[in-house]
């Protein structure tokens, strides 16, 4: 665990040529991604293009392929295969809302939300936690286990878990996919609002962001490049400004 506070004065995400061979001959690559604190970018591409994979790459959770001039920094920490995860993925640096909304089945809602902060050995900001839980409409379910929650509630628990440490960057993988359409706009608005309160930069992977809160948020470019029998699915923010949400 890195004890120093995350550096938010510069880019909280700075990535060049970071990629992975997802299947034989098929690469997912982030060519360029720069985000400052409070900025938001959407990875919007067809299903199978590798949006979730791109988030996994940013999160440093995937084994990367060897590309020239690779650069990968989260909150000022260079991420390499040797960097301890805690140095760049602790709760004050990175929050990740998984598409699968995986929660620990034997911990209560509140304990699940606290888990990353506890694992990092940090103090839980009780006031901020209470604010998150209430804002997400989970105030009455704190003691419930994930098995006693609806899919939508679990998704909201995942968001609260990701935001409790006020991360420098918040990675969202289809965070509203399990919600009924009536709630999508509300929860998206909440995410935008709470991420702004936390001062987090946001990377959203979604195929249903054409409407709702993220409809007008800048997209990363996405293109497919076929070269020498290999296929590259490339995301890039080159020449694009991200949205300043706050």
């Amino acid at each position: 665990m890195s004890s120093a506070a995350p550096d938010r004065s510069h880019n909280v995400v700075a990535i060049r040529n970071l990629g992975i061979e997802r299947a034989p001959g098929f690469f997912v690559v982030i060519e360029e991604l720069d985000l400052h604190a409070g900025e938001t970018i959407v990875l919007d591409a067809v299903s199978g293009a590798g949006k979730s994979t791109a988030l996994g790459l940013i999160a440093g959770a995937l084994p990367v392929a060897a590309f020239p001039d690779t650069r990968h920094e989260i909150a000022g920490v260079a991420v390499t295969g040797d960097t301890p995860r805690a140095d760049y993925a602790g709760p004050d640096r990175m929050g990740f809302v998984l598409q699968t909304n995986t929660l620990v089945p034997y911990l209560s809602l509140q304990e699940n939300i606290e888990l990353p902060v506890r694992v990092a050995g940090q103090q839980v900001d009780a006031e901020w936690q209470d604010h998150l839980i209430r804002a997400m409409g989970l105030g009455d379910f704190r003691a419930r286990k994930p098995g006693q929650l609806s899919v939508g509630q679990r998704q909201r628990v995942s968001v609260a878990r990701a935001l409790l440490g006020r991360p420098a960057v918040l990675l969202l993988d289809e965070p509203v996919s399990a919600l009924d359409p009536a709630n999508v706009a509300e929860v998206e608005a909440l995410i935008v609002h709470l991420a702004a309160e936390a001062g987090s930069a946001v990377v959203l992977a979604s195929h249903q962001a054409q409407s709702g809160e993220f409809a007008h948020t800048p997209r990363a470019d996405h293109r497919i490049l076929n070269h020498q029998g290999q296929s590259y699915s490339i995301f890039s923010t080159k020449g694009r400004a991200a949205a300043r949400v706050a």
Binding site: A59, R85, G90, P91, T102, P105, P116, V119
Partner: peptide, 9 residues
């Protein structure tokens, strides 16, 4: 869950 723990550092 073990993978999640790892993800959560």
């Amino acid at each position: 869950i073990f993978s999640l723990y790892s993800m959560l550092t």
